[in-house]
């Protein structure tokens, strides 16, 4: 108990929670559409809640729902979601040094709350300080805000998604949320190449069954980015 009280400061936790409110507003349409997607894939409300509460990743949930509706085999669904989730490895590695002072129990709990948005909001703060406690507490607060809001918006989308007029084109909010994540990354040549190769591949291979184009395109983009990064380094060293 004592270790717990020392590890987390309630004031910072509350601050992190409140700080996440603007991002939550932006994620509302994304959560709604993800809930609609679960309904369209034929999930019941418990299955939809399971997706948002346990998978807790918009990209993986959208992919799973799309592939599920397309009748893809389990192995393809799981593999595609796994590759999309590999970005968490990167976030995990970036967060690890800052979470090291915390007790393992807290590390295990905070890891579950690691999402694109929570990572983006906290990593800059970790960089700025030597004491991990305050940013970790804020991360906990922000992560909890995101998790709770994600359940609310997913369920709202599942139950009331059909009340939203089609003319609002709310489903367009999903690619926009990912554009908000990807566009700021496109600052160096290998990353641009990774995106361009993946983009071309996913369109060119549209005819592949079971939405295999998604994973093939993703892996091609990763390979293209990595190779151009390696060759660029070799070139500049000469």
């Amino acid at each position: 108990m004592l270790a717990m009280r020392r590890a987390i400061s309630p004031a910072d936790c509350r601050e992190g929670f409140l700080e996440m409110v603007p991002a939550c507003i932006g994620l509302a349409p994304f959560g709604l559409v993800t809930g609609v997607g679960a309904a369209a894939a034929g999930a019941d409300w418990l299955g939809a809640l399971g997706m948002s509460a346990i998978i807790f990743s918009g990209a993986a949930q959208i992919i799973a729902a799309q592939l599920f509706a397309a009748g893809a085999p389990l192995a393809v669904i799981i593999l595609t979601c796994f590759v999309a989730g590999l970005r968490f490895l990167m976030y995990s590695a970036a967060m690890a040094p800052y979470l090291k002072p915390l007790p393992p129990r807290w590390q295990n709990g905070l890891a579950f709350l690691l999402t694109d948005q929570a990572f983006g909001a906290s990593i800059r703060r970790f960089h700025a300080t030597n004491d991990a406690r305050a940013p970790a507490s804020r991360f906990l607060g922000g992560g909890l805000a995101l998790w709770i809001w994600w359940q609310i918006t997913n369920m709202a989308g599942f139950f009331a998604g059909n009340l939203i007029p089609a003319s609002w084109s709310l489903e367009f909010a999903v690619p926009l949320c990912f554009v908000a994540l990807v566009a700021p990354l496109l600052r160096d040549a290998p990353t641009v190449l990774a995106a361009v190769v993946a983009g071309f591949a996913v369109v060119a291979l549209d005819g592949l069954p079971m939405k295999l184009n998604l994973i093939v395109a993703g892996l091609s983009g990763i390979a293209a980015g990595t190779l151009s990064d390696l060759s660029r380094e070799r070139w500049t060293r000469r």
């Binding site: 999309a84 590999l86 990807v182 496109l186 641009v192 996913v202 983009g221 980015g225």
Partner: peptide, 8 residues
């Protein structure tokens, strides 16, 4: 390159 490739 995972986010840029996979999310695109």
């Amino acid at each position: 390159y995972v986010p840029a490739a996979m999310l695109t």
